[in-house]
Design a protein around this nucleic acid. Sequence first.
DNA 1: TCATTAAATTGTT
DNA 2: AACAATTTAATGA
Length: 237
Amino acid sequence: MQTDSALHQRRRALTTAELDAIPWVLLLSPLERERAVEDLKIADADAGEYICRMGRPVTYWFGVVDGLLKMSSDTAEGHTMTFTGVPPGGWFGEGTAMKRETYRYNIQALRKSRVAGLHVDTFHWLLDHSIGFNRFVMNQLNERLGQFIGAREIDRMTNPDIRVARSLASLFNPVLYPGVGEVLRITQQELAYLVGLSRQRVNEALTALSAQGAIQVEYGGLRVLNLSALRSQTSFR
DNA sequence: TCATTAAATTGTT
DNA sequence: AACAATTTAATGA
């Protein structure tokens, strides 16, 4: 398996198309943008590869350009609990980057992904100079707080159909993951890993949601037809 | 560009 | 966990 230091060695500069996939770049002034873009690096991560690990010092603020990542944490009992998936357009680690602490979770690529990184020093420089950037980060923190509260409720749900629906809804969050759009590229196997269910059970849940008209199942992805229906999924069995 | 083949993903038991 | 059916990606003429 590749280590995150190997990831560092495979960095390169970004193409314009990749820059377009980064939601906060447009919020910067030309000067700020120049400095940020200069520092931005991108790397390909293979499936299963770690982007960052718990306890390691924060060196980068990361974002997903393409692919799908898994955010998880190792508990004291030795178990691994999955927090959430991170689809394209998602940036994470701003809380720990601000405090220059160590990562509080593991980030692992669920499939081959392209990950962008901004050095913490540049992250702080932007916080000190750019109002647009501050707005983005604040909005990000606020939105994620809401998502984590929602995630606690999801964990309490025993009904798999609801768990799948609510987890899907958070992956389709347009504020946190603007790169997703109408169709989320995710296989049923990947979703199963995220939700912690078998692929069969996920498939069953997706069929049910599809029958309700909330989503449309496609090959290698899912299309949202009714996001609020996914969010407000309650017990019906 | 098209046809063939391999690989990935899905639906079902 | 295993299977067949379907879809996509890769290959090479």
